[in-house]
Simulated assay, not measured.
Amino acid sequence: MNHDMPSPAGATDVFSTHSVFGAPCWVSLTSHDVQTTEEFYGAVLGWQWRPVRLGDRFRIALANGAPVAGIAGIAGMGQMAAAWTPYFAVRSADETVARVQERGGTLAVGPISLPPGRGALLADRDGATFGIWEGELFTDWPTWRRTRPAFVRLHTRDAFDAAIFYGQVFDWASDKPGCCEVQYEGDEVVLRSEGDLVARIESGAVESAPDPRIRPHWQVHFSVQDVAACARAAERHGGSVLSLTDDEAVLRDNEGARFTVTSRRER
Rank of each mutant, 00 (worst) to 15 (best):
H237V: 09
H32V: 09
G55A: 04
G55E: 04
E95R: 15
F170C: 13
S208Y: 02
T262N: 13
V190G: 15
V261T: 04
L154N: 06
N64D: 13
D56C: 11
A120H: 05
T143V: 12
S263H: 10
A61L: 00
A93Q: 12
G238Q: 06
R264N: 10
P111V: 06
A150L: 12
V152G: 11
A69W: 00
G186F: 09
M1F: 08
R145E: 15
V190Q: 15
D33T: 08
T147M: 08
T37S: 15
V169L: 05
V206Y: 10
G46F: 05
D158H: 01
R265V: 07
R91C: 04
E102C: 13
G117R: 06
T139Q: 04
A231L: 02
E235C: 03
G127A: 03
E39M: 06
S174G: 05
D94W: 00
E248M: 15
E134K: 14
A89T: 12
D171A: 05
I112H: 07
M1C: 09
P115S: 05
Q183R: 12
W218Y: 13
A66H: 01
P149L: 03
S240V: 02
L45M: 01
E185G: 04
R192S: 06
E266P: 02
T129K: 13
H18Q: 11
E207N: 10
R53Y: 08
V189L: 13
T262L: 14
Q79Y: 09
H217M: 15
I112T: 10
G131K: 03
M1N: 07
S203T: 07
L114H: 12
P51M: 01
A43E: 11
F21T: 09
